[in-house]
């Protein structure tokens, strides 16, 4: 019976702490809001529609005249959506950051990254060894710990092709 009462009290206290703790914690800044799912943006809807119209012609659902009409109409809609698309939206953000990083590294006399005594400045900001000759880098410091580790590694090389 006492054990049960203690358990009940513990449950109650834990629940109360869980619910009330945010009220006493200092107002932490909210994380940046997540970008829209591309499928719900006007751009995504219009692009998908165009592809669907192509496929419907291919499966014989759309006659040639209907296809021409719809293709023209939805191309216009898609162009409209692209025109109104904010430039720093969603995926572009990563590319902007990478581009800035690349610019900084390539800039003459840049101090942004570590330098190798023989091979010059290294592009990897947190490199400890030179990626070209393998020597230990002088003054290797972890300057930007998060970017590479925090991002999804597999997307970064593939996107760099676009830059």
């Amino acid at each position: 019976m006492t054990g049960e009462a203690i358990a009940a009290a513990l449950v109650g206290l834990a629940a109360l702490w869980l619910v009330l703790q945010p009220l006493f914690a200092a107002g932490r800044p909210l994380p940046p809001s997540e970008p829209l799912d591309p499928e719900e943006t006007p751009r995504g809807v219009a692009l998908t529609a165009l592809k669907e119209i192509d496929f419907d012609r291919e499966t014989g659902k759309l006659s040639e005249t209907d296809y021409q009409f719809l293709k023209a109409k939805y191309t216009a809609i898609a162009l409209e959506a692209l025109r109104h698309e904010p430039h720093d939206s969603g995926g572009d953000r990563l590319e902007v950051m990478i581009a800035a990083r690349v610019r900084a590294v390539r800039a003459p006399g840049s101090e942004a990254g570590p330098r190798c005594g023989t091979c010059g400045p290294r592009p990897e900001p947190d490199a400890v060894f030179c990626s070209s000759c393998g020597r230990k880098l002088a003054g290797a410091v972890v300057t930007e710990p998060g970017l590479i580790r925090g991002g999804t590694p597999d997307t970064i090389p593939s996107r760099s092709a676009v830059i």
Partner: peptide, 11 residues
């Protein structure tokens, strides 16, 4: 791509 961009922004 959008997700990767968001994660980068979070970092």
């Amino acid at each position: 791509r959008v997700q990767a961009g968001y994660e980068a922004a979070l970092v």
